[in-house]
Simulated assay, not measured.
Amino acid sequence: MLGPIVAARGLPLALIAPATFVATFTTSVAGAAVYTALALVSPGPVAMDW
């Protein structure tokens, strides 16, 4: 969410893009860890009910 703001302020995109990818990857790993932890302690399914 901050990428466009810092890009508009002049920070090169070559510096913004890797940080964005790392943040996205970290968020994905954290989400997978939470679902794994919930699956271990929950008696029922933990998947989302779309």
Rank of each mutant, 00 (worst) to 15 (best):
M1N: 05
M1K: 08
M1Q: 09
G3E: 13
G3K: 09
P4C: 05
I5V: 15
I5Y: 03
V6T: 14
A8Q: 06
A8L: 14
A8I: 11
A8H: 01
R9A: 12
R9C: 10
G10E: 06
L11G: 01
P12I: 09
L13G: 07
A14I: 12
A14D: 10
L15T: 14
P18K: 06
P18M: 01
A19N: 11
A19Y: 09
T20R: 02
F21T: 09
V22T: 12
A23S: 05
T24L: 15
T24S: 11
F25Q: 12
T27N: 06
T27W: 09
T27A: 10
S28E: 09
S28C: 12
V29S: 11
V29W: 15
V29E: 13
A30G: 08
A30V: 08
A30L: 14
G31Y: 15
G31C: 07
A32W: 12
A33Y: 15
A33S: 14
A33D: 13
V34C: 08
V34G: 02
Y35R: 11
A37T: 01
L38F: 14
L38R: 08
A39H: 06
L40S: 05
G44S: 07
G44Y: 04
V46H: 01
V46F: 07
A47D: 08
A47L: 12
A47P: 00
A47Q: 04
M48S: 05
W50M: 09
W50Q: 12
